[in-house]
């Protein structure tokens, strides 16, 4: 197996395409966690977004409508979680798990109710790649970076956007403060609830976008459990990325790269058991996570419900 495989431009192109849904969902979760709420139902939310996007696109023949609908569906679920977390002070992990299970069942149910049993699966048109004028003609890098779908471009644009929003706006300052010490924020007369709901809305929309990406860019169909663990991966990427957008992007790229590499390697390398190759990206992520986790610090008030009148 030649080492040139590692720098194959097609591999890089693949990496970008498949990293995109991961990074979008991870950015959404990052915003939510920065406000102090832990949402572990991402997988279920992405599934609901995927099925909603698919159904709406199929009905309206408009990908844009589908994407927006998918984002909205996920945002509703996220707001539900934060309602439990903020208004009711409930256990965030339990509710998140419940939403995950709900999402899995609801998405399959919705698909079945709308489409029933067929001999030919329903499908929609996937987004076509939009080559950027001029840039797409550059040798080698042109095809890799500048010949992607609009959603893929958006995914990477979102990284600096979210970074700027978190670190260079008053909203971001207050949001981060809420995740570290909500009491301090409250004492300044800033509404902790409003910030957390706001984060939930924005984060939920992004998680939905990540979920919608799968049918509308990659497969043109919906199938049960099509996220295949990507929601959990997004959760891990937030930790891996130390709650910073650019580092999370690094993690997403790393994972997608190893995953794409594994498929290429599988064609030529027959001695390695296929199960090992399938496991490789996760193993890689785990090893790197253990190494770089030192010093990473979660928002201090993560997953702790804020009660103003709590003593001590």
């Amino acid at each position: 197996m030649s080492l040139w495989l590692l720098v194959d431009p097609h591999l890089w192109q693949q990496t970008l395409v498949y990293a995109a849904p991961l990074i979008i969902a991870a950015l959404g979760e990052l915003i939510i966690e920065r406000s102090g709420v832990l949402n572990i139902g991402i997988e279920g939310m992405m599934l609901v977004a995927a099925v909603t996007c698919f159904v709406v696109t199929w009905q309206t023949r408009s990908a844009a409508a589908g994407i927006v609908a998918g984002m909205g569906a996920a945002a509703i679920l996220t707001l539900l979680l934060v309602y439990y977390a903020v208004a009711l002070g409930g256990p965030q992990i339990t509710v998140g798990l419940g939403l995950y299970v709900l999402g899995v069942g609801l998405s399959s149910l919705l698909f079945r109710v709308v489409f029933g049993v067929r001999t030919s699966p329903p499908s929609v048109q996937t987004l076509a790649p939009v080559p950027l004028p001029g840039l797409a003609d550059l040798p080698v890098v042109g095809h890799v970076f500048f010949h992607q779908t609009l959603l893929t471009y958006l995914a990477f644009l979102l990284v600096p956007l979210v970074h700027l929003a978190l670190f260079r706006t008053p909203w971001g300052l207050r949001l981060r403060a809420t995740g570290e010490n909500p009491r301090s924020v409250d004492a300044l007369g800033i509404s902790v609830e409003r910030l957390r709901y706001g984060a939930a809305a924005v984060g939920g929309l992004l998680i939905g976008l990540g979920g919608a990406y799968l049918p509308i860019v990659l497969t043109g169909t919906f199938s049960d459990n099509m996220t295949a663990g990507r929601g959990w991966l997004a959760l891990m990427l937030v930790i891996f990325g130390r709650w910073m957008p650019f580092t999370a992007l690094g993690g997403a790229l790393l994972f997608a790269y190893v995953e794409a590499f594994q498929f290429k390697a599988g064609i030529v390398e027959k001695a390695v058991p296929v199960q090992f190759l399938l496991m490789l990206p996760y193993l890689f992520a785990l090893v790197v996570l253990v190494r770089i986790y030192r010093g990473a610090r979660a928002p201090q008030a993560l997953a702790v419900p804020y009660d103003r009148e709590a003593r001590g």
Partner: peptide, 14 residues
């Protein structure tokens, strides 16, 4: 205070 913010950011908050 917010431990990971600078003094300036803490004073500015809000």
């Amino acid at each position: 205070l917010i431990p990971t913010f600078s003094a300036l950011e803490n004073v500015l908050l809000g």
